Amino acid sequence: MPELPEVETVRRTLNELVAGKRIQSVTVRLPRIIQRPAEPEQFAAALAGHTIETVERRGKFLRIMLDGLVLVSHLRMEGRYGVFPSDEPIELHTHVIFHFDDGTDLRYKDVRQFGTMHLFKRGEELELPPLNKLGIEPLESEFTLEALRGKLEKRTTRIKPLLLNQEHIVGLGNIYVDEALFQARIHPERTPDTLKPAEWKRLYEAIRSTLAHAVDAGGSSIKSYVNGQGEMGMFQHQLLVYGRKDEPCPACAKPIEKFTVGGRGTHICSKCQPPAGSK
Rank of each mutant, 00 (worst) to 15 (best):
M1A: 10
L4W: 11
V7T: 05
E8R: 02
T9Y: 07
V10E: 13
E16V: 02
L17C: 12
V18R: 02
G20M: 06
G20C: 05
K21P: 05
Q24N: 14
R29T: 05
Q35E: 13
Q35M: 02
A38Q: 15
A45R: 14
A45F: 04
T54E: 15
T54S: 14
V55H: 08
E56M: 09
E56I: 00
R58I: 04
G59I: 06
K60W: 09
K60H: 11
R63A: 11
I64N: 04
L69V: 04
V72I: 05
V72R: 03
L75R: 03
R76Y: 07
M77G: 12
E78F: 04
V83R: 15
F84K: 05
S86I: 04
H93A: 14
V96M: 11
D102W: 11
D102H: 07
D102F: 10
D105C: 10
K109I: 03
Q113K: 15
T116P: 00
M117A: 09
H118A: 03
K121Q: 15
K121N: 12
E127L: 14
L131D: 15
P138C: 04
P138D: 08
T144I: 03
K151G: 04
K154D: 15
P161K: 01
N165W: 03
N165T: 06
Q166S: 12
V177R: 07
A180N: 06
A184T: 11
H187L: 07
T191Y: 01
P192H: 10
T194K: 14
T194Y: 05
T194W: 07
A198R: 10
W200S: 03
L203Y: 13
L203Q: 12
Y204M: 04
Y204P: 01
E205Q: 14
H213W: 06
H213V: 00
G218V: 01
S220E: 13
S220H: 06
Y225G: 09
V226F: 06
G228Q: 13
G230A: 10
G233C: 07
R244P: 09
R244S: 11
K245S: 13
D246Q: 13
P248N: 12
C252G: 09
K254D: 10
K258Y: 04
T260N: 08
G262K: 00
R264F: 01
H267M: 10
Q273D: 14
Q273A: 08
P274I: 07
